[in-house]
Design a protein around this nucleic acid. Structure first.
Length: 594
RNA sequence: GCGCCCGUAGCUCAACUGGAUAGAGCAUCGCCCUUCUAAGGCGAGGGUUGCAGGUUCGAGUCCUGCCGGGCGCGCCA
């Protein structure tokens, strides 16, 4: 519709130029937007005010000229030039009612657009190190990333969702060694657990599995492990050096068996992460292994590519990427003095891999604490020969958990974090997914666990789902009431939907498609959440004032069609953000007979 | 110190990316169930959009400087 109005205005301007009533070198961009205030019609154009300087005429005068030159349109009932210089368009009733028919016809395909037609994008999100279960901090990235994937798909993009598994490197060695030490304790050995080892109970659980599989086969003389190692921090030494020494000894003592422990630890944690994400309604197309980058030649290829472009130099024994040349504030090490490749080297290789797989765009979703990565990744993209704007890095701010007024303090360090699984068990996937995305991703979020669980209108998830369930309930009762639903009769009589509440609801429905499109373009998934709340509100207001199951067959069926369309949109929108649309609401506290 | 993000009703947030009288919910106060889920609805009060300038027809939105908050600045992952 916006396009249609733009065309009308463009034609009008051309007429005016032809008739030499105005002079314009080039046609300006014609902005048409939805009117905020229903009193201003359905759409508004600001073109007259934009042109006032060029034409040296009062905007209201220009507006009147344009209105006078507009062609007739069967969709538009009224055009008005008003106050400062807006041109307001009011659609015909017929045109406004069409959205109901369209939704009922297209069902879950309604709201699709082709903004991303023929575009392949990869969205990488969460990518937490597989050294422990996901916690609530990861939850927001998961909810946001997954919702964004859904929104982009709905907008026609070919989307590939990826989780980058850091299954290589020192952290993983610390994990494997931690598991092995716990295993030895289970075998009855006494030892001093390193300060920097992974402390959580889940390590002991994995150790138990190792023991179940290997019995006592992996036992060694404990003293050997701590032979010649640097003192730990709490012994007045260095915790990093200490754990590195312990790891080295463990590798030597276990030989081939080290890899077996390593594998069990990795698989256990990774499958836990996968399960948690599945339960959270988060799905991936690919779990991309960092180790594979090392085993194949991707890292070497990426390094070579940088070297070919003369973006690499050697300093103090290490190989550096001259990231500053591309706008980063520091140069970055690719290979350390000891020959080990850095994490950043893998990142560059992975980025190259993404582009060579043919993606038009690589979207990254990081926690806000990683914002330092933006400039170095973009620098890498440029150095590899790609445009920096093919890489979109989105930062997700932290969420503060509350229980009512009480702020839950959590530290990732001591292992006293709340896991994502605990959260989902507590409030459910539907509420958690909604709460995580209801604010803009680049804004801090207060997540109130009590509110998320409450079954009142204060809880937006409940409020929205209740609207959906209410509609389902209305339809369930029709047979018993002997009030059959006839879609065709309803379609013919849509014009009977004439109250302010019905108009408001229809208007809300008509905004769904543009809301989805806007969310896709701006990456603002929260607009979907806000929209759903507004839609639910419009519905509840309609419901409270308009009797649906009435005796008038024409009106009843028209209203049922309105309900039906609303139900589709509620369900579709909820699905986009990963929440479900229940057909009835249950509560332990609520007594059905009351 | 440098860099990034953010300051909107007492609280939590919107505002269609520069448009018309800045909107919701909570909290406060008042109303509506013999009627499809009151698990809901209707109404009232509440604002110098952190402060000061600038850009233009027009600024919560863009630019500069302050004030206040969050995060980041390793041959760590």
């Amino acid at each position: 519709m916006i396009g249609h109005i733009q065309e009308l205005i463009e034609n009008a301007l051309e007429h005016l130029i032809q008739r030499e009533e105005i002079q314009l070198e080039t046609l300006p961009d014609i902005q048409v937007e939805r009117a905020r205030n229903p009193a201003h019609g359905d759409y508004a154009a600001n073109i007259a005010m934009v042109l006032q300087k060029q034409l040296k005429k009062p905007p209201i005068e220009i507006a009147h000229m344009i209105v006078g030159a507009l062609n007739q349109s069967k969709h538009i009932e009224q055009v008005e030039a008003v106050k400062p210089g807006f041109i307001n368009f009011t659609l015909t009733k017929q045109c406004r009612l069409q959205v109901i028919r369209k939704i009922i016809e297209q069902k879950e395909d309604f709201g699709r657009n082709d903004i991303g037609k023929d575009q392949h994008v990869t969205v990488e999100f969460v990518s937490a190190n597989p050294t422990g279960p996901l916690h609530v901090g990861h939850g927001r990235g998961a909810a946001y990333g997954s919702s964004l994937v859904n929104v982009l798909k709905k907008s026609g993009y070919q989307v590939h969702a990826e989780y980058y598994v850091n299954d290589h490197g020192r952290q993983m060695d610390i994990l494997a060694t931690s598991v092995w030490l716990r295993y030895l304790e289970l075998c009855g050995d006494q030892l001093r657990f390193p300060d920097n080892g992974y402390q959580g109970d889940y390590i002991v659980n994995i150790a138990r599995q190792v023991r179940a599989k290997f019995g006592d086969d992996l036992r060694v003389e404990v003293n050997q492990i701590f032979d010649q190692v640097t003192k730990d921090e709490s012994q007045g030494g260095d915790k990093e050096a200490h754990i590195d020494d312990v790891i080295q000894n463990s590798k030597n003592l276990l030989n081939d068996n080290y890899q077996k422990v390593f594998k069990i630890a990795l698989n256990e944690i990774l499958s836990g992460i996968k399960d948690d994400l599945e339960d959270f309604n988060v799905h991936y197309d690919e779990w991309f292994s960092e180790k594979k980058l090392h085993q194949s030649d991707w890292i070497d290829r990426a390094m070579q590519r940088l070297k070919d472009g003369e973006h690499v130099f050697k300093k103090e024994g290490a190989w550096w990427f001259n990231a500053t040349y591309f706008g980063d504030d520091k140069d970055r090490v690719l290979m350390r003095e000891n020959g080990q490749k850095t994490y950043f080297a893998s990142d560059v290789a992975y980025l190259l891999n993404k582009f060579e797989r043919g993606f038009d765009r690589a979207i990254y979703i990081f926690g806000a604490d990683h914002h330092g990565y933006i400039s170095r990744l973009k620098a890498a993209a440029k150095a590899l020969g790609y445009e920096a704007d093919k890489v979109d890095i989105l930062l997700v701010q932290f969420a503060n958990l509350f229980k009512g007024q009480e702020k839950l303090k959590m530290s990732t360090r001591s292992g006293s974090f709340i896991t994502l699984k605990t959260l989902v068990d507590e409030v459910g996937t539907d509420a958690a997914r909604y709460f995580y995305v209801m604010r803009s991703h680049d804004q801090h979020l207060d997540f109130d666990l009590e509110l998320a669980k409450s079954q009142t209108k204060d809880n937006p998830v409940f409020y929205i789902q209740y609207a959906h369930a209410r509609i389902c309930s209305v339809f369930r009762q029709l047979d018993a009431q002997n009030m059959p639903y006839n879609e065709e009769i309803g379609i013919v009589n849509l014009k009977l939907l004439d109250s302010d509440y019905e108009k408001a609801l229809i208007r809300q429905l008509s905004m769904y498609a543009e809301t989805v499109a806007k969310a896709a373009v701006s990456y603002q998934v929260n607009t979907i959440a806000n929209y759903l709340k507004d839609l639910a509100q419009s519905f509840h207001q309609f419901y409270a004032h308009c009797k649906i199951q009435g005796d008038n067959e024409d009106l009843r069926n028209a209203r049922l069609n309105l309900c039906s369309a609303t139900r589709y949109i509620l369900a579709d929108g909820l699905a986009l953000i990963g929440s479900s649309a229940p057909t009835e609401m249950y509560s332990e506290d609520f007594d059905q007979d009351d």
